[in-house]
């Protein structure tokens, strides 16, 4: 494992911790898209079907379990917790995420590394992850204001993608048989989706002001 991949995993982990902190400390999930969170839970559940069939490392196994558990915890909290649920911006979170699931599944049936149950769901999870941030970005766009923790959550999530791209570049040059264009192209698409958000994040950071998105 190289430093970029590790930095990517860590920023991914930090993003989830920031999200849990926000929900736990403020007892509020305003600004957070339940649809994006449900998509992430689906992403991890379908990608880590290999949890019991392929062992990579203790690190991988623990991280997979953490990602599955934390994504389910966020969804459960937003749906079931009496106080948290009340702060959910339901009227702003209207992105039709079922289309993203359908599109990703069709693409996974057509473009995969092998036409097997596990490989199709692996490809599905990669495509869905690339698109899963869309309901979240649309919600932020609609509400205009972005509170600090929500902004940091999305920032770390974007940093994770950026580090993974550096990781693939590094692996491309250092490993003999590194070719995983499905993950690379999807990862690139996902990072491009963040570009707009990053722009406004850095502007607010530079001006030391609360982050605001244009209407």
């Amino acid at each position: 494992m190289n430093i970029f991949r590790f930095a990517g995993d860590m920023t991914h982990l930090i993003s989830i911790l920031v999200l849990l902190l926000k929900i736990y400390a403020t007892k509020s999930c305003s600004g957070i898209s339940l649809k994006t969170q449900e998509l992430y839970a689906l992403v991890f559940l379908t990608r880590y079907l290999d949890l019991f069939t392929d062992f990579i490392s203790v690190y991988n196994t623990i991280m997979k379990l953490v990602f599955i558990a934390s994504s389910l915890a966020v969804v459960c909290c937003m749906r079931m917790h009496r106080v948290v649920r009340r702060s959910y911006d339901k009227d702003l979170d209207t992105f039709r995420h079922y289309f993203l699931i359908l599109a990703s599944f069709v693409l996974a049936l057509l473009v995969n590394e092998k036409f097997t149950f596990q490989e199709i769901f692996w490809a599905f999870s990669i495509y869905l992850e690339a698109l899963a941030i869309l309901p979240q970005l649309v919600l932020l766009q609609r509400s205009g204001n972005v509170d600090n923790l929500t902004g940091q959550y999305v920032f770390f999530l974007g940093a994770y993608r950026a580090f993974y791209i550096l990781n693939w570049i590094y692996r491309y040059f250092t490993e003999q048989h590194f070719s995983r264009w499905i993950a690379c192209v999807s990862g690139l698409v996902q990072t491009v989706l963040y570009a707009d958000f990053f722009y406004y994040y850095f502007i607010s950071w530079k001006n030391n002001a609360k982050m605001q998105l244009p209407a």
């Binding site: 990579i56 991280m63 070719s179």
Partner: peptide
């Protein structure tokens, strides 16, 4: 022979 690509990333 080229090693098969396993999904070793998260």
């Amino acid at each position: 022979s080229p090693k098969e690509n396993v999904h070793d990333e998260l």
